[in-house]
Design a protein around this nucleic acid. Structure first.
Lengths: 198, 198
DNA sequence: TTTCAACTGGACACTACTGTACAGTACGCC
DNA sequence: GGCGTACTGTACAGTAGTGTCCAGTTGAAA
């Protein structure tokens, strides 16, 4: 949450405006991101806002970059550093998505992308990054061609939205289902034997 | 789109307000559903609005019911009538979700549900209806227990969001992947043999 | 000690939107 | 022809939000 460069809390920093704006975006949609509301929530007046941002449009642009960086690039880099074996990496991706509650951010960003082509472009780029990351894992597991692509999409899509659809479900059951799902994704679905396509 | 009871187009009907409101909700989020905007879009003044609805809150409430009915109950009933064999029904569900572009409505409703507990309640009820519908299919296919639940969730979640994540992808490839996915959902994932758990 | 960046609040003019009120109109029915 | 239903536009008062200007404060660095 804290920015890397040390800020004495003498005022409201640019990042503080962004974090609150992201909060509002996530909970109420981009039309709800109002400067006056942000100021009220931060317990200050609007004037400081115009020090950091040109106007509302400028804030929204920065918000988009902020999300793409904080909630995708940083997390993917984090997973890349560890370089676990493929099947463990699959599990750690699932855990990361859950822990960071990425689904609710995705929800807001995708909704926003419906109107703004610029937002859509960034969102599509993020989706591509995620697909590429997952695909690499399934390549290591020995999948190729359409089978590889199908699994990559199914895995990425399910885990992106699981948090939205089954939020309040029973944790114990969730863990059992996750184990089963993990097994399903690992098991090759050849019709005859059970060998991996090569 | 037309309401069943015949309306002479002498004015803006309640359904016309609702349809436009749903449009605005889907594209810009619930905060964007403004009476003045609707009136402008419909080429009329706001006064007619207050004939049909008590106020903005009343419209939003009706909008919720409108969606739950038009985009879930009606469609599920439609699929139920046909009573195709389970594996064909699985395919027709996939097709229906795509054809009606349910994903973009889901997106808006889920985003809205993040703030309003009443909306969340309806959305959860709709999710439950869909899960129940899919589960029945997988029961007919011979799945039970956790394996049944895992497949039901994976299937429902993937198809609900596929349209958002992979909107502009190549149709030919999509069809090939769908066939593969269909096979994967039908094939039991037993570790030893390939028999269905009974 | 001054200077500057990073703020602060207050005031202004403006637009968007809300709910209410009210008078008028166009159609269908008895 | 008159009545009711289903609208229509206009006007008003009020709130929320925008961007701009400006004068003041505060902490660190030179």
């Amino acid at each position: 949450m804290d920015s890397p460069d040390v800020k004495k809390n003498k005022g409201i920093s640019k990042d503080q405006w962004l974090v609150k704006a992201l909060e509002l975006l996530v909970s109420n949609g981009f039309e709800a991101v109002k400067i006056e509301r942000l100021a009220k929530l931060l317990g200050t007046s609007r004037s400081g806002f115009y020090w950091h941002f040109k106007n509302r449009q400028d804030l929204l642009q920065h918000l988009l970059d902020f999300w793409a960086l904080e909630y995708t690039s940083v997390l993917i880099d984090d997973l890349d550093i560890k370089k676990l074996p493929a099947d463990k990496r699959l599990l750690s991706v699932m855990k990361m998505i859950r822990d960071h509650k990425l689904a609710k951010y995705d929800l807001a960003m995708n909704a926003w992308a419906q109107v703004d082509p610029l937002v859509d472009e960034i969102v599509q780029r993020v989706v591509k990054m995620r697909l590429d990351f997952s695909r690499e894992i399934f390549v290591e597991l020995g999948f190729v061609g359409d089978e590889l692509e199908m699994r990559t999409r199914l895995f990425t899509c399910y885990h992106a939205w699981e948090g939205v659809m089954f939020a309040d479900a029973d944790q114990d059951k969730n863990l059992r289902l996750q184990t089963l799902r993990h097994k399903m994704f690992l098991t090759p679905s050849s019709s005859a034997g059970c060998g991996v396509q090569v």
